[in-house]
Computed example of a mutant assay.
Amino acid sequence: MELFDFTGFQIHRTDVKMNNYFTKQLKPFEITPDQWGILSVLDDDKATTQKELAEAIDRDQTTVVRMIHSLEKKGIVMRFVHDTDKRSHNLYLTDKGAALKAKVLPVVIAAHRHATRYLSETEINELKAMLEKLYASVNEE
């Protein structure tokens, strides 16, 4: 088999290009695609624990803690000790974080539309379904 015959290579190659494109779109807002993932999950009036956040963005908790710390320094995220579990933290967006999320969302939507512009809505849905199946097959490991 040739390199381009391997699905993993094709997915990785596409992911690198999409991540680079997305990074350029987010640069004016001084956030990374991973930080956008956090912003998109967090809310300004509903608590999310670090564990819930890590699961939602599919990252290990150590990486998430580092990203949260960076966003805290920027004044985008607040972290409070959990009421019942002192080892856990509740996360919220600050007013600045909520405003940033609202400002970035249209850019994210436009970037998504740009990246998928050659696909029909049906193809996008089929691609999502296939990627979920691939993810499930390797997530079992």
Rank of each mutant, 00 (worst) to 15 (best):
Leu39Cys: 04
Tyr21Val: 13
Phe29Thr: 04
Gly37Glu: 11
Glu123Pro: 01
Glu126Tyr: 13
Asp43Thr: 11
Ala56Leu: 03
Ala129Val: 08
Tyr21Ala: 15
Arg117Gln: 14
Met18Gln: 07
Met18Lys: 06
Leu3Phe: 10
Glu140Asn: 04
Leu134Pro: 03
His69Glu: 06
Asn139Trp: 02
Pro33Thr: 12
Lys24Cys: 06
Ile11Ser: 06
Glu123Cys: 05
Thr32Trp: 10
Pro28Tyr: 10
Ile109Ala: 04
Asp60His: 14
Val64Asn: 00
Phe6Ile: 13
Val138Ile: 04
Thr116Phe: 13
Pro33Gly: 12
Ser120Asp: 02
Pro28Gly: 12
Ile124Arg: 15
Ala102Tyr: 08
Phe29Gln: 02
Ile38Trp: 05
Ile124Thr: 11
Ala56Asn: 09
Ile57Pro: 01
Arg117Ile: 13
Val108Cys: 15
Gly75Ala: 03
His89Val: 08
Ala102Gly: 07
Ile57Thr: 03
Thr14Val: 04
Lys128Trp: 04
Asp60Ala: 12
Gln25Ala: 05
Thr122Lys: 04
Val104Trp: 09
Leu134Phe: 14
Tyr21Lys: 15
Glu132Arg: 15
Asp44His: 11
Asn19His: 14
Phe22Ala: 06
Leu53Phe: 10
Val107Thr: 15
Asn20Met: 00
Asn20Arg: 03
Ile68Leu: 04
Lys86Pro: 06
Gln10Ser: 01
Tyr135Lys: 11
Gly8Ser: 13
Val81Ala: 08
Met1Gln: 06
Asn139Cys: 00
Ile124Ser: 09
Leu71Thr: 09
Phe4Leu: 00
Ala110Glu: 11
Arg113Met: 12
Leu105Thr: 07
Met130Ile: 03
Leu91Ile: 08
Leu134Gln: 09
Ala115Met: 13
Pro28Glu: 09
Leu42Tyr: 02
Glu55Ser: 15
Ser137Gly: 06
Gln25Gly: 01
Asn19Gln: 14
Glu123Phe: 06
Val16Ile: 05
Asp83Ile: 12
Ile11Cys: 03
Gln10Asn: 03
Ile76Glu: 00
Leu100Lys: 05
Leu93Asn: 02
Val138Gln: 02
Val138Tyr: 02
Asn139Ser: 05
Val77Ile: 09
Lys46Ala: 03
Arg87Met: 12
Asp44Thr: 11
Ile11Lys: 07
Arg13Phe: 01
Phe29Met: 02
Glu132Pro: 07
Glu121Thr: 15
Met67Arg: 13
Leu3Ser: 08
Thr49Gly: 05
Val65Met: 06
Leu100Ile: 08
Tyr92Trp: 10
Arg13Leu: 01
Ala129Phe: 10
